[in-house]
Simulated assay, not measured.
Amino acid sequence: MEQRTVLVVLFDGVQSLDVTGPVEVFTGAGLAHGGDGPAYLVRTASLDGELVRTSSGLTLVPDHALPDAPVPHTLLVPGGMGTRPEDPALIDWLREHGPRAERLVSVCTGAIRLAQAGLLDGRRATTHWAYCAKLARDHPGVEVDPDPIYVRDGHVATSAGVTAGIDLALALVEEDLGREVALTVARHLVVFLRRPGNQAQFSVQLSAQTARREPLREVQQWITEHPDEDLSVDALAARASLSPRHFARAFQAETGLTPGKYVDRVRVEHARRLLEDTSDGVEEVSRACGYGTPEAMRRAFLKALGTAPAEYRRRFHPVPPAAAPAAPTRTITAHADR
């Protein structure tokens, strides 16, 4: 198996977890794949090869100066406070050398550096939620999606803040070396195998605005605490002592979401937590979340997360390799699924 080089760019003010999270994933995967040698050769480099100080005060020792570093398979640009002031020399290096990498990855505000180098033009990307508006404003050629924890667009992958870099790194390992290797690394790091990339950065309660008027705030709380109840506009309007039309208009004006969309998001989020944290069956979860039937919940998951409830659960409660039943032998003809 060909060894893949992962080069992580370092600079003063870098967020240490943006560096160490993916490094631990790739290093662990390199040892876990069971080949003759490590599957990944992970290296770090600063522009001048000198020590860098992270935003938390830790000092990192790079392996190379960037001009002397080998052309990597995967070039990873982390984020942090160091991305706020412009760094023309680093941007110039990225502009020249970034296209040479087979895979270009950013964590958190590292996407801003890629955009400054013109490497995200015409692409869909994400970054830390607090900087999505800035990325979109400063780089109109980038299609910024503020919701997912990571985004893949061709050979370029961008992720949201801090721990999302671990999710993205696990996804890349799964793509390179298979699910079992990614699962082994996730278990070692005591993290989920990986959250789906289109999972929202925020819970619905955080992403939606809090209503100003107390009756509407009470309705928001009621929805959160009683996802299995009748949450139709008529029922919710009655709780707020408003007419259905007045309630729907006021709720959207004060929260930024229609009552129906808010309810949909709360139910999906509640179902996710039950699938992650309990052993309840899909049918039981669907009833507890107000869907009524597993098929209704399945449609909601596919629309919101791009995956079915059963597959979502497998990412959090995978069958150990030794216990997995042997797949029946069969011959299939299929197109590539990705």
Rank of each mutant, 00 (worst) to 15 (best):
M1D: 14
R4I: 07
F11N: 03
F11K: 00
F11D: 07
L17A: 09
G28V: 00
A29S: 03
L31D: 05
A39Q: 04
V42H: 01
R43H: 07
R43F: 02
T44N: 04
A45H: 00
S46F: 03
D48H: 09
D48F: 04
T54S: 09
G57H: 10
L66T: 00
D68E: 09
D68T: 03
A69Y: 00
T74H: 07
V77D: 06
P78M: 06
E86F: 01
P88R: 02
A101N: 03
A101V: 00
L104T: 03
A117I: 05
L120R: 00
R123S: 06
T126K: 02
T127N: 08
W129F: 15
K134T: 11
L135S: 07
R137V: 04
V142R: 02
I149T: 10
V151E: 06
V151I: 13
R152M: 10
I166L: 06
E175K: 12
G178K: 02
G178T: 04
R179G: 06
V185S: 05
R187W: 09
L189G: 04
R195L: 11
Q199H: 11
A200R: 11
Q201G: 06
F202P: 03
T210P: 08
P215G: 10
L216G: 07
E218W: 05
E225A: 15
D228N: 15
D230Y: 10
V233P: 11
S243N: 11
H246L: 13
G256D: 14
D264T: 13
R273T: 12
D277L: 15
T278W: 07
D280Q: 15
P294R: 05
L305V: 08
T307A: 10
A308L: 05
Y312H: 10
R313G: 01
R315A: 09
H317S: 12
A324C: 07
P328E: 12
P328H: 08
